Simulated scan of single mutants.
Amino acid sequence: MHPSHFSAVLLFALFASIVFGITMRDTPRKMVRYGAYCFALFAGAAIVLSWLMFLIAK
């Protein structure tokens, strides 16, 4: 199995967000919310940075 760069970034974001959610918050509800927030930030940053690199390369 050879994931694309984007799916590898999303997989990293998923696992990092799980770890951040578990280690940074106390209650399960806060863990899930913070994990989802971190995942959204990771994925959003990946998309924004990839577009910036695309525009710089032109």
Rank of each mutant, 00 (worst) to 15 (best):
M1N: 11
M1A: 14
M1G: 14
M1P: 10
H2S: 11
H2P: 10
H2F: 07
P3A: 04
P3D: 00
H5D: 15
H5E: 15
F6Q: 12
F6N: 04
F6R: 15
S7K: 10
S7E: 15
S7C: 13
A8E: 15
A8G: 11
A8D: 13
V9K: 04
V9C: 07
V9Q: 05
L10D: 09
L10K: 13
L11I: 10
L11G: 14
L11F: 14
L11R: 10
L11V: 07
L11Y: 12
F12K: 14
F12A: 11
A16K: 14
A16Q: 12
A16C: 10
A16S: 10
A16E: 13
I18M: 14
V19E: 07
V19H: 05
V19D: 04
F20V: 11
F20Y: 10
F20D: 10
G21W: 02
G21K: 01
I22F: 07
I22A: 08
I22E: 06
T23M: 05
T23A: 05
T23S: 05
M24V: 01
M24E: 09
M24K: 07
R25A: 07
R25Q: 11
R25P: 02
R25G: 00
R25I: 02
R25K: 12
P28E: 02
P28Q: 02
P28N: 03
P28H: 01
R29W: 07
K30V: 03
M31Y: 01
M31A: 05
V32L: 13
V32C: 04
V32N: 00
V32D: 00
R33I: 11
R33C: 07
R33V: 12
Y34C: 04
Y34K: 06
Y34S: 08
Y34I: 03
G35L: 02
G35I: 02
A36D: 00
A36Y: 03
Y37L: 15
Y37N: 08
Y37S: 14
Y37W: 10
Y37D: 08
C38W: 04
C38H: 10
F39M: 15
F39K: 00
A40K: 08
A40P: 00
L41S: 07
L41H: 04
L41Y: 12
F42H: 06
F42I: 00
A43S: 15
A43D: 04
G44L: 06
G44V: 04
A46L: 01
I47E: 05
I47M: 06
I47N: 00
I47L: 08
V48P: 00
V48Y: 13
V48E: 05
V48M: 11
L49C: 08
L49E: 09
S50P: 00
S50D: 08
S50T: 11
S50K: 01
W51D: 05
L52G: 09
M53Y: 12
M53V: 06
M53T: 06
F54M: 10
F54Q: 11
I56A: 13
A57C: 03
A57I: 09
A57F: 10
A57V: 08
A57D: 12
K58F: 11
K58D: 13
